[in-house]
Amino acid sequence: MSATGQARAVTPRQVVAAKGGTPLVCLTAYTTPMARLVDTHCDIALVGDSVGMVLHGLPSTLGVTLDMMIMHGKAVRRGLEHALMVVDLPFGFYEESPEQAFRNASRMMAETGCGAVKLEGGETMAETIRFLTGRGIPVMAHVGLTPQGVNTFGGYTVQGRGKDRDRVLADARAVADAGAFAVVLEKVPEALARRITEEIAIPTIGIGASAACDGQVLVADDMLGMFTDFRPKFVKRYAELGAEASSAIEAYAADVRARRFPAEEHVFGETPKAAPKGDTK
């Protein structure tokens, strides 16, 4: 049973109702198989623009396009029955105006079947959030470190330290007041994340923030040890699937070169034999 207490598909309204209760569980998903795994255990499946780095080898999220997000959104939708599907609006597809954001967000929802979109930015995006939510598009906000603003921040640095805490706090208040149903707090000091969680009425979803947040999100490939280009401090590795996959591929290559694979049980003879269920003769 999820934090929302629902066996049926989670909705943004149910996410809001989970404020202050059992923490919400969120992981990224970019493919149908991963969506099926996430759906079993999570309240929210985020089709993040991190897909550009994790699956497409891009140096940042800035090169991700709307078509890429729609393609991965469709794939994830096929694997979900329970979790709320939220899809990132990529850089350059919503900042120009509320009208641009609505045009692209409505296309995203229509073509992927997602239940909400996510966009980055605080006070500067409040008008856009209000515009979208007023027209039937649920919005998850994202403040603190916003990866699409990496060039402005000068890297993936902690946000909200010292005098900067007032800016991040104001951003969180602004998106809540504008109608966002939840807000991601990324890479902000623990005390600030705790304060924001206590002060705003919508759930906070932490990533590099605080256990006091109303939920947590990680990139699934990070916590599974499949994406190893870098390892942020806030990532806990629950498995090392990348290393296991590398060992398996090494063993396969050795078997092929030594002609140990395919073995007798993997090839077909002149006379048909009883095949395992689901196989062909």
Rank of each mutant, 00 (worst) to 15 (best):
E198I: 01
A110M: 12
E123Q: 12
G115W: 01
V184H: 01
V184S: 05
G134M: 00
A172L: 10
A126R: 02
R195I: 02
T124E: 15
T197Q: 10
L192S: 08
M125S: 10
K163P: 02
A126P: 05
D88E: 06
V175D: 08
S97V: 13
A180D: 12
L169R: 15
G155F: 08
I200W: 09
Y156C: 11
M108C: 00
A172G: 02
R161L: 15
Q100N: 02
I200E: 04
A209K: 08
V143W: 07
D88K: 04
R167N: 14
A174R: 07
Y94D: 10
I137Q: 05
F131H: 15
V117F: 03
D164P: 08
G113W: 05
A201I: 04
G208H: 04
A172C: 14
F131C: 01
E99Q: 15
F131E: 01
I196A: 03
D88A: 05
S106F: 13
K118D: 02
I137H: 09
K118H: 05
F93K: 13
G155A: 05
G122N: 12
G136D: 14
E186Y: 05
G144K: 01
T146C: 13
M108Q: 00
E120L: 11
T157V: 15
T146V: 13
D164R: 14
L132Y: 01
G134S: 07
P147C: 06
G113M: 11
N151A: 14
F102Q: 06
E198H: 14
A211F: 11
S210W: 03
A191N: 13
N104D: 14
K163Q: 12
E123L: 11
P138S: 02
S106P: 04
L169E: 07
A201S: 15
I207R: 04
F102H: 14
K118R: 06
P189Y: 08
G144Y: 06
V117Y: 00
A105S: 15
T157R: 15
G162W: 03
V117K: 00
P98H: 06
I200F: 10
T112D: 05
E123T: 13
F91R: 03
A193D: 09
R195W: 13
Y94S: 04
A101Y: 07
R195G: 00
L132N: 06
V150R: 01
E96S: 12
S210K: 10
G160N: 03
L119S: 02
T128E: 11
E186W: 07
P90A: 04
A105G: 07
A172P: 12
C114L: 07
I129G: 03
E96L: 15
A105M: 09
V188S: 12
E120S: 05
M125F: 06
F91G: 00
N104A: 07
V188Y: 10
T204H: 14
G122D: 08
G121N: 05
V117W: 00
D177T: 13
E95F: 04
G136M: 12
K187A: 15
G115M: 02
L132H: 05
E199A: 02
R107N: 09
Q148Y: 02
A116C: 13
G155C: 14
D88S: 06
T146R: 04
E127C: 06
R194H: 11
T146Q: 09
I196P: 00
E198W: 06
T112E: 04
A176P: 03
R103G: 01
T112P: 02
I202P: 09
F102I: 03
M109D: 03
A110Q: 14
F181Q: 04
G144P: 01
L169Q: 08
I129Q: 01
Q148N: 05
R103E: 15
E120R: 00
